[in-house]
Amino acid sequence: MTALGLFNYWAVIFLMMVGFYTLIARGNLVKKIIGLNIFQTSVFILYITMGKITGGTAPIFVEGGEDVIYSNPIPHVLILTAIVVGVATSAVGLSLVIRIKEAFGTIEEDEIQDESL
């Protein structure tokens, strides 16, 4: 798997930047939250990439497997926590979007700006 070298990291950076661009360049608030989710997932992929060992297997003990290589379990634990926290964050974000829609009648950034002037 060393043939892959840095490919995974570069793919993660590409995904991250697509999410980041969606977040800062799109005016629609729901679209921004989708962009945030893309960004989050790319960070998860980055961590899991770091935990992978070539020729390894999932870190669950197998019977009589003394010379089995297990991948690093710590990034997995961290990302399990991060996934759940990420969903909690987007839930709060989406309910803010609903409140903004109720208050301004729109979820487009520039229209909200016009209205609040």
Binding site: N37, T41, F44, I48, G51, K52, A58, H76, L80, V87
Partner: peptide, 15 residues
Amino acid sequence: VMDAVDVAFTEAAVG
């Protein structure tokens, strides 16, 4: 593919 089966469950269910 990257051996993180628990993370995959959670991502499929929650994400």
